[in-house]
Structure formats: structure tokens, C-alpha cells
């Protein structure tokens, strides 16, 4: 499975990949290879981290058409959405990405991640809100593994806040999933 986290430099996009990759590799028994797009223009412009996940050894390290795309900025949505595999999952911060919509068989889920983080007292944890949301929607990684991966990757003084942010995003994701299942049932 190929996953891309994207947004702008400074949002913790690389950290999203690091936490998820560490969780999968060290605690969920998977192989997860993380690569990152780094350039001289890193801070403030489009930035992304890519994870290739496999139960076997990862051979080709880069992603081509990801199954999951997480967008935390307008620019990253416009740049990376066309690469999303048909039938893939698109996760967006609904306040930062305007006019996002699913295409073909892709499914879209949105969350006001930055706003939730602000409610928690610090918008810097918006990436953890998004990771909680991502964990609930995709089910590619266990919550236990994600929590275990946090120490060492977030400052110890804000570990609790980061965990809280993750939980809020996770709950939001569970509710979104339940909601979308209901609406699908209604259609049937």
C-alpha cells in the first residue's frame, strides 16, 4: 500500500510519515519505507512524505499512484490529487483545502483538523489530529502502535497534548465512517 501525506512545510508532514512508518515497522510487524520530498523551498510551500507499506520487503522505494492521499493545504491538493489511484482514499483538512471533491471511485473524508487543534489549545498538533483521523479511516495501522510511536518523535513535554489530538482525530474519523455507512445504507 502506498500513502502520501502532503501539505506545506512546517505543518509536520514529514512527522506524519515518520510516526506512521515507525508505528508500522516497529510495532505492527510491517515493512514501511519512508521517503520525503525535500527541496530548497521546503518551508511554506508544498511538501510531502511517502510511505510504501508491505508485509514483504519493500523493493521499489517510491510511490507512483498512492491508495491514500492526505492533503493539508490547497497547493498540495492541486499538485497531488491527480496522482491518487482510482478507488483511493482522499483525506483533507476541510478548512485548508477548498472545493475538494472525490473523483471516479475515490472516496473523500474531511476533517477540520486545524480547528480541532486550535480548540485543544495549540494548532501545532493539527498533524496529530489528522493522523488520528487517518488511522480511523484507513485502518492500515493500529492505534496502539501509533501511540507507542509518539515518544521520541514529539516533544516529551507535549506528549499528552499530542495523544489527545490523535484521539480527537480518531473519534472524528470513527463518526465520519459511521455516518458514511449510514448514508450508503440509505442509498440502498
Amino acid at each position: 500500500m502506498d500513502i502520501r501525506f502532503s501539505g506545506f512545510g512546517g505543518q509536520g508532514i514529514i512527522k506524519c510519515g515518520l510516526i506512521t512508518g515507525k508505528a508500522l515497522s516497529l510495532f505492527d510487524g510491517k515493512n514501511a519505507t519512508l521517503t520525503q520530498s525535500i527541496g530548497p523551498e521546503a518551508r511554506g510551500s508544498a511538501c510531502s512524505s511517502q510511505l510504501v507499506i508491505s508485509s514483504d520487503r519493500v523493493l521499489y522505494p517510491y510511490i507512483v499512484a498512492p491508495e491514500v492521499l492526505v492533503c493539508m493545504s490547497q497547493e498540495s491538493y492541486e499538485r497531488y490529487e491527480p496522482d491518487l489511484r482510482d478507488g483511493g482514499l482522499l483525506l483533507v483538512d476541510e478548512d485548508l483545502v477548498r472545493n475538494a471533491k472525490p473523483r471516479g471511485k475515490t472516496k473523500m473524508y474531511s476533517i477540520p483538523a486545524t480547528r480541532i487543534a486550535e480548540e485543544l489549545g495549540n494548532k501545532i498538533v493539527m498533524n496529530l489530529v489528522m493522523l488520528g483521523f487517518f488511522t480511523a479511516i484507513t485502518e492500515v495501522v493500529s492505534t496502539g502502535a501509533m501511540k507507542k510511536a509518539l515518544p521520541g518523535l514529539v516533544p516529551s513535554r507535549s506528549l499528552e497534548l499530542n495523544e489527545e489530538a490523535f484521539d480527537r482525530g480518531y473519534e472524528f474519523g470513527r463518526e465520519a465512517l459511521a455516518g458514511s455507512e449510514k448514508s450508503e445504507e440509505a442509498l440502498v
Binding site: 515497522s25 514501511a32 521517503t35 520525503q36 525535500i38 522505494p61
Partner: peptide, 9 residues
């Protein structure tokens, strides 16, 4: 660069 910047276990 690929191996140098690639994260794995």
C-alpha cells in the same frame, strides 16, 4: 541519496 534519506527499521 535514496538510501541515505530513506527511513526503515
Amino acid at each position: 541519496e535514496c538510501v541515505g534519506h530513506m527511513y526503515e527499521k
